[in-house]
Amino acid sequence: MEMKLALKVDDLDNVATIFANDVTAGTTVEVRDKQGKTEQIRLSADVPYGHKIALTDIARGDKIMKYGECIGAASTDIKKGDYVHVHNLEALRGRGDIPG
């Protein structure tokens, strides 16, 4: 069967985006970067089309990077292969409690 694909946009990124349907816990996906280098990662959870996975362990409070830029911080400890979304990624902008 063809390997499910995830794309890593920038070398600094610690997440990749899954572009495949029916990706379930235990699936091994192929993460491809812009140079075409690949790495296989086993997923710990179901991940919907267009959603993100962790490429490394990310400690609570650490920056989550996509496009080579910060897209938020980890709100819990995240393991490599975990699903990354609003349940464990916290925006740092557009909020009243911390300066923009």
Partner: peptide, 15 residues
């Protein structure tokens, strides 16, 4: 946006 995988305003903006 969130259902489509965008997790934060930063991620949406950068895209």
């Amino acid at each position: 946006n969130i259902a489509g995988g965008l997790s934060s305003i930063e991620e949406k903006s950068l895209g």
